[in-house]
């Protein structure tokens, strides 16, 4: 049980997809304008990761090595389609806010990266916990980035105004603001890591 727990935990801090593996930055840059978008994107990606990791580790022995990437993409695309249709049905507002970035989870490097680097050579159960951990790590990173951007860029958190006297810095709502925040956070986490070693 302990080793499964480790597989889950490593995705959150030690191998955090955003801040350590530096994968999946395109959706991170695009949707981290507000916390609610970040959470929505995180949950959608977690579901896809979970599904694709489990299925790919199940069928890993029958996938021919030379065409494995197209096979992975077919599996991933299936789960992305399920996610998108579910989101359209139950939460159309979120779907509109995330826009093109929901179908683009197909090419999210975290999902393909975990399939290629992990699920295709590990057991089903381990892959499940790995997918879950990576998804939660991605979601937490998105919440952190979008929290900073929403608080400083529009003076709100989850849509609630924090303090009416604050004059928001528009630049943090722009793509350049996302690059700034991600860069500074990456630097900050690297400093922490270096201190520890």
């Amino acid at each position: 049980m302990k080793k499964y727990f480790y597989e889950f935990l490593k995705g959150i801090i030690k191998e955090n997809p955003t801040f350590v593996l530096v994968l999946g930055l395109c959706p991170t840059l695009a949707v981290s304008v507000s916390v609610i978008n970040g959470i929505g994107m995180g949950i959608a990606a977690t579901f896809v990761l979970l599904g694709s990791n489990v299925i790919i580790s199940l069928i890993k022995n029958i996938i021919p090595a030379r065409i494995r990437i197209p096979c992975f993409i077919v599996v991933i695309a299936t789960f992305v389609t399920i996610t998108e249709m579910t989101m359209k049905a139950y939460s159309p507002a979120l779907n509109r806010a995330l826009g093109i970035y929901v179908p683009l989870i197909v090419v999210n490097c975290i999902v393909l990266g975990r399939a290629e680097a992990y699920a295709q050579r590990q057991t089903v159960l381990k892959s499940l916990f790995d997918g879950l951990g990576m998804g939660v790590g991605f979601t937490l990173a998105l919440i952190l980035i979008s929290g900073i951007r929403e608080a400083l860029g529009s003076g709100k958190f989850l849509g609630y105004t924090l303090t009416p006297r604050y004059e928001p810095a528009f630049v943090l709502g722009l793509p350049s603001g996302a690059l700034l925040v991600i860069g500074l956070l990456l630097g900050f986490f690297n400093v922490l890591k270096n201190r520890k070693e």
């Binding site: 004059e167 928001p168 810095a169 528009f170 630049v171 943090l172 722009l174 350049s176």
Partner: peptide, 8 residues
């Protein structure tokens, strides 16, 4: 430029 983009 940061100020310009933030508080035009």
């Amino acid at each position: 430029v940061f100020l310009m983009a933030s508080w035009p």
